[in-house]
Write a protein that binds this DNA or RNA. Structure first.
Lengths: 201, 201
DNA sequence: GCGGGTACTGAACAGCGCTCAATTGCTTGC
DNA sequence: GCAAGCAATTGAGCGCTGTTCAGTACCCGC
């Protein structure tokens, strides 16, 4: 064969990522080989290298897409109700995503890159992350932005840990139960620390 | 070559695991190949299969050894002082281990096995985990064992999440800072929930 | 309709996990 | 002290991987 031009480079990228997504979702990272992707979309593996630097680059792009999905799943939860309820809704949305797509989600964290991540990647993480900060904002005054950011990171990391351990089957109870406890303790503790005493939260 | 018997099977296992440990600690999972291990200990890769079922089995054994080290690092922290201080000490020991051996620690969670884990593995995890439950026990009566187990899992998972994200560089602040906040909120919240109201912790 | 440029292929390379026939040295029975 | 047998180890080799690249066959502008 020679030149085909059935697809523009953008279409081809999308095609590859879509195939990769399906493979990982169904069979996990180990099944994600260049030959397999190529076969699924009717090309050969060499063609992938016109459109991705290497396998790591492809996985990074896939992870970017997964982060976008995750953001979509989580960003609608911060409306109405009180902070505790919103936190619970946010946590449930996150856990729900992880349960629906454990393999894709795992790929984000399990894959250890050889190369440093490119500039476009950290903002995608930060955007998902920012939802927690927004949800938490009503608890903190304008002056306590720093405390809010810290609390958001704390809760997010905790939620993350529960999802990791649940998806490994190491929890022996649902992540939702644990995260409810976490939120309850956090809210109760916050009222004591911020309201009563003079210690910063 | 033929029969050598320079080492007993047990010695050989230890030799392999030691070499594997060094390779992972220094260069990460990607560098852990059977040929590389064999070369480092003066055998050929085929010999490893006398002593381990396959690469997954070898990694599982290495992870078991890492869990033993982790337990040793963490088990001495629950003595004296009040619960909050002990929690902090425990968390710092855990974080310290992760910072000292990020690659070995990551291997425990990043490696996705094809086969289910053998019987001897879960107790090693549970033992590390149990330290948190012991540390937390004074906060809960004999009757509230369940609450204690749940709180322990919650805190452990949270601590875990912070370590994961710190070792990925996704935290933008030290895990120790976050975990201190977590413990402070937990203790304050616990006093409210258990002491004041009638809600279970 | 023809030339130039390029998207694509397919063969090839090095290395991977893993297997197994062949080998070679130890060990045991005599 | 020697032979026979046993088993630990090798090394070649299989099928796979990611990655590269010369060559080709096609599309497009002229």
């Amino acid at each position: 064969m020679g030149r085909r031009a059935d697809h523009t480079p953008e279409q081809l990228r999308a095609l590859v990522l879509d195939a990769a997504r399906k493979i990982v979702a169904a069979e996990g990272e180990r099944a994600l080989t260049t030959r397999r992707i190529a076969q699924d979309i009717g090309y050969t593996s060499g063609t992938l290298y016109n459109v991705f630097k290497d396998r790591d680059d492809l996985i990074l792009a896939l992870n970017g897409a997964t982060l976008d999905e995750l953001f979509a799943a989580v960003s609608g939860t911060a409306r109405g109700a009180d902070v505790e309820k919103r936190l619970r809704a946010l946590a449930r949305a996150y856990i729900g995503f992880v349960r629906a797509q454990p393999q894709l989600w795992s790929l984000i964290f399990e894959h250890s890159r050889a190369t440093p991540e490119p500039d476009w990647y950290p903002p995608k993480v930060a955007r998902v992350f920012g939802v927690m900060e927004e949800t938490l904002a009503p608890l903190y005054g304008e002056a306590a932005r720093r405390d809010c950011a810290q609390a958001a990171r704390m809760l997010w990391a905790s939620l993350h840990g529960m999802c990791v351990l649940e998806s490994k089957g190491a929890l022996a109870m649902p992540a939702t139960t644990l995260v409810d406890g976490l939120i309850r303790h956090f809210i109760a503790g916050h009222e004591v620390l911020a309201g009563g005493g003079r210690r910063k939260a």
